[in-house]
Amino acid sequence: DSKVKWKMAATFPSSLPQLGTLGKRLEDQIAKVSGGNIEIRFYEPNALVPPLEVFDAVSMGAVDAAFSTPGFWGGKVPALQVFAALPFGPAAPEYMAWFYFGGGKEIFDEIYAKYGIKSVMCGMLAPEGSGWFKKEVLSVDDLNGMKLRFFGLGAKALGKFGVSAQLLAAPDVYPALDRGVIDGLEFVQPAIDLKMGFWQIAKYYYFPGWHQQSTFFDLMMNKAQWDKLSPTQQAQIESVCGDNVRYGIAEGEAIQLPALKELQEKGVTIKKWSDEDLKKLHVAVDEVIAEQVAADPDFARAYASFSAFRKDYATWKDIGYLK
């Protein structure tokens, strides 16, 4: 097979646990597995492409590949959000079961193919935290009038509780939280949030991350480049990515508790939403999803496939697993 030398644009820096390190791991592993025949070089965000521009760049063939999450493309291809993380969505085993065996992958491939992209799931994150708050939030009704930095489907759902979602420039987030322009924000998960230093200002960290249980990361590749690979090379990439999903889940589950302990030592209070609050949020999320389903046929199709699978799976989950 002819040697492959690709450039891969990342959407998170290599220094960030999981978000970046999983991409870096892909670079290392593919070189080893292929005996050096495939080189996929990791480029930091902005080094070649600004993070939110990688979809177009891969689609146009300006870079060969990008390490990202389908959740970034809600503004371009709303349906792809179904393949990143769903509010009140599944844990990793259920999500993978649907994706690999429940019809998810076929829809996923079909959607990306429209844009000249071949994508392979290539990482998975543990559940996220549901936000950092400066003041204790007693119930979701307390959120009314709060200014939060929040993103995506979750932001839309919180809007129904009177939350004002803020965009804010990256360097402004820290001073804005410090001075009270915003009352809180959502980022990722304990191990990553620890590095970002939000604990320096906000002392209440809420769980569970109802808006994002498990999150898929994917390797987007320019379809023309992918088609040029030999079957062996394609299998090598798919295998390494499959292994990256396994690695992401295992690592993600393992690194949270040490991080949580460190956060608690730094004076952070860990809080949990009550069941009642979660129910209210769930209702809001269902409304948001219904709006998305009505607005976009691809979203509707992908979500229908997932919902159908979930309904059947519930029976198995109920009898198969200990409570």
Partner: peptide, 22 residues
């Protein structure tokens, strides 16, 4: 030549679509 597309990506993504530079 396709790589030249990134000139547009970069002008757009890091200079125009940028809330700090505002």
């Amino acid at each position: 030549p396709a790589q030249l597309f990134l000139i547009v990506s970069r002008i757009w993504g890091s200079i125009a679509d940028n809330l700090v530079l505002v």
